[in-house]
Design a protein around this nucleic acid. Structure first.
Length: 422
RNA sequence: GGAGAGGUGGCAGAGUGGUCUAAUGCGCACGCUUGGAAAGCGUGUGUAGGGAAACCUACCGAGGGUUCGAAUCCCUCCCUCUCCGCCA
């Protein structure tokens, strides 16, 4: 959510942001509702002030006196007016709030113009995308794959996209999780194991609600299975005022993530490329506004270092205005090369939300300078998502003899040097 | 799951229909005092919205209701605690 004051004072900034993100939002309509809302607030507050002063006067009068009774009669009209106007105001307020939620975050000045994924800028990376060797195949075609990742039985027991991970498959996942969490701890992120269901208020604060409820699994108790640990992590400090000296705060969390992925189809969803339940380690930062871009670069480098240590070729994309998302001010994607499919797979997305989420979630800090609460900036990024990293390891490290070489840094966690698919 | 008791400012805690603009205490900040400190004394100390400002308005777990008027009465929900039951 944007600052209503920014909208009032600089509507052109907001228009420019919408244009850069190639989104459709009616700034004038929001401004019109804002004007109506402010007029109604003033009206209701005047009526309430009348009521209050009458109340004070009545307190001093004897209860049954003619003056008192006259005053009661007089105030009945005001009371009715307050009620009527308050209903109107509440109605307007709902529309006003909903209207504000249609306005996207402003993209940072360094975000490149562009509309499509092709216009994202490749700004870095590591390693070289290897050409397909004769024996290279997509990971789901590796002989024995189904012994480690059983999609068939997962479909029987739960549904499509809920694979069982078995034996070496399960252990490799666990090795990756341990590796990621340990590395992140070394980089200063405190590990958190959060609830994996959240309530509607939390899902709203991070932007899953309203509008995107179709992408989450919902329980009878109106709880949502988390689509990412970002949701419970960010909400940890919802409605709190932090001490400035505690910033920046770094946290990381492993959770399973649940996504309905309604509407996905085709090659994108084969094998481990896209599943409904997957494991991910998420990095999260709450920082002072003056440092958030510095912190974004550091966050991205932390995620990159994981891929480097796994010796996986990857590239870094700076997302263009049209492909960066509604809430982000700046976003990088890390894409890992999968030699069997000969394509890039997104394994991390590192974003600065500036105060956009913090305003919704009301996460603030008390500024030493002003003595007043100010909104923090929030940032998050995957560090990292397991299935696609797994896919890349399987495809890139597949040997001619059908075994898969385990990255050296995982061997201590995994306990053997090769996957044998046995 | 059953029964009961609760939820008030940073914390403790009073307030059961009307200047509540929420007592009092603690904490915190500043000042006086002091060689310095403690004690003592004094002053101040929440968040949000509207307004150029003066100032006004809202907020006593959340949401509704009754009333001229609600922290206070009624309803629904959430959470905490105690006891019982069940259980990894």
């Amino acid at each position: 959510m944007l600052d209503p004051k920014l909208l009032r004072e600089s509507p052109d900034l907001v228009r420019a942001a919408i244009a850069k993100k190639h989104l459709d939002a009616d700034v004038d309509a929001v401004l019109a509702i804002d004007t109506t809302w402010r007029a109604q607030v003033t009206e209701v507050e005047h009526l309430r002030a009348t009521q209050k002063s009458a109340n004070t006067a009545m307190a001093a009068l004897p209860k049954g006196s003619p003056e008192f009774i006259a005053k009661v009669q007089e105030m009945k009209a005001v009371s009715a007016a307050v009620k009527a106007k308050e209903v109107e105001l509440k109605e307007t307020e709902l529309h006003w709030h909903a209207a504000l939620l249609t306005l996207p975050n402003l993209p940072h000045a360094t975000v490149p113009a562009g509309k499509t994924p092709e216009e994202n800028q490749v700004i870095g990376g590591h390693g070289t995308p290897v050409e397909a060797k004769p024996h290279a195949v997509a990971h789901w075609e590796i002989p024995g794959f189904e012994h480690l990742f059983d999609f068939g039985r997962g479909a029987k027991v739960t549904g499509a996209g809920f694979p069982f991970m078995i034996g070496e498959g399960a252990r490799l996942v666990r090795a990756l999780l341990n590796f990621f969490l340990n590395e992140n701890a070394k980089a200063g992120y405190v590990e958190v194991s959060p609830p994996i269901f959240v309530n509607a208020a939390s899902a709203t604060a991070t932007g899953q609600l309203p509008d995107k409820e179709g992408q989450m699994y919902e329980t009878l108790d109106k709880l949502y299975a988390v689509p990412t640990a970002e949701v419970p992590l960010t909400n940890f400090y919802r409605d709190e005022i932090l001490d400035e000296s505690t910033l920046p705060i770094y946290r990381c969390a492993y959770t399973p993530c649940f996504r309905r992925e309604a509407g996905s189809y085709g090659k994108d969803v084969r094998g481990l490329n896209r599943v409904h339940q997957f494991d991910k380690v998420e990095l999260l930062k709450w920082v002072h506004p003056s440092t958030s871009y510095e912190e974004l670069d550091k966050l991205r480098l932390d995620a990159e270092s994981l891929l480097q240590k796994l010796e996986l070729p990857y590239r870094v994309l700076l997302m263009c205005g049209g492909d960066m998302g509604f809430a982000q001010a700046k976003k990088y994607d890390l894409e890992v090369w999968a030699a069997g499919q000969q394509r890039w797979l997104e394994v991390s997305s590192c974003s600065n939300f500036e105060a956009f989420q913090a305003r919704r979630a009301q996460i603030r800090f008390r500024s030493q300078a002003s003595g007043k609460p100010e909104l923090v900036h929030t940032l998050n990024g995957s560090g990292l998502a397991i299935p696609r990293v797994l896919a890349a390891i399987l495809e890139n490290n597949l040997q001619a003899d059908g075994r898969v070489k385990v990255p050296a840094v995982l061997v201590p966690h995994f306990g053997q040097e090769y996957l044998s698919f046995g």
